[in-house]
Design a protein around this nucleic acid. Structure first.
Lengths: 155, 155
DNA sequence: CTAAATGCAAAATTTTTGCACCACA
DNA sequence: TGTGGTGCAAAAATTTTGCATTTAG
């Protein structure tokens, strides 16, 4: 974990950006919440614990910067705020299953898209650098609940 | 096209919603801009031509309603506003290729995800009702442009 | 030392809400 | 005719920006 933080700080320095304590704390937050998809405000609240007088604007600016540097990715689950997660370059592509019942977001891995990407590039000339796949539906628990009601659709 | 509008209006009536002129004009807008991905404000500006004293709030409320009824889908391309497009139940699932150079959004069809969905449901119990796949990269034109610069990465 | 980064507060944007009035069914 | 829908304006929520001050390199 420390390694990763250092690696990213080096990346910052090499890009002529300064490694400020604020930026470090924000990065640490993402490393320590690797499974979550934090919004700017959530990051802000977590970070205030370790760096009480940080400003929300700094959080926004840092998230923007880190996304620009391909250290974070923006994601949007449709809840009105932009969320961020660390890019895992080594790891397999992972995607999201968003439960329409309880709103929980599960992840799964899949590299099955690569052949599709190649096909698309051949057919359209579009050079793909990244993809994002989301499945919407109902998680096991919510699916079980709505079976009780044996309804034919929305409540 | 008229058929489709009528079908949707019936769906509204059956759900005990009223078919107001505002709702009709908004629906017509989506039928006439089938290839675009309109935001609330864009819809509002288009619709004001035919119904000058419509309110932006009504547009938001109508888009919400239509999304709830599964007539529209919300999409988010990361430009800070929610966009909408008509759901095409008969048609194949289509997805988006978003150019990071010029921002244009192309579409493509693919049903290749179905086997993946089945696998996931078997493994996780997650009942999938919909999916969304986005490819990010560079369209043919932008890819050609950046080849000139023969750069090794970001500018 | 100096350009970049920060904090604060104000502004800009997008979306939601309260309420009196209107109109579809 | 009555309830759901609408317009307006105000509020809420999220994100961006200007500027004086601080700080990393």
């Amino acid at each position: 974990m420390k390694n990763k933080l250092n690696a990213i700080c080096q990346k910052l320095q090499q890009s002529e950006y300064k490694v400020t304590p604020q930026r470090q704390v924000i990065l640490k937050t993402f490393l320590e919440h690797a499974t979550e998809h934090l919004s700017a405000e959530e990051v802000y609240n977590i970070v205030k614990g370790q760096h009480p007088d940080i400003g929300l604007a700094t959080v926004y600016r840092t998230l923007d910067l880190l996304a620009e540097l391909d250290i974070l990715t923006k994601i949007n689950f449709g809840d009105g705020r932009t969320r961020y997660e660390m890019v895992q370059h080594e790891a397999h592509h992972h995607h999201h299953m968003i439960c329409l019942g309880c709103g929980r977001v599960q992840e799964f891995d899949a590299d099955l898209l690569e052949s599709l990407e190649n096909l698309l590039t051949r057919k359209t000339g579009f050079q793909i650098t990244d993809h994002q796949l989301k499945f919407y539906g109902y998680c096991r628990e919510c699916a079980a609940k709505s079976e009780d009601k044996s309804g034919s659709g929305d409540i």
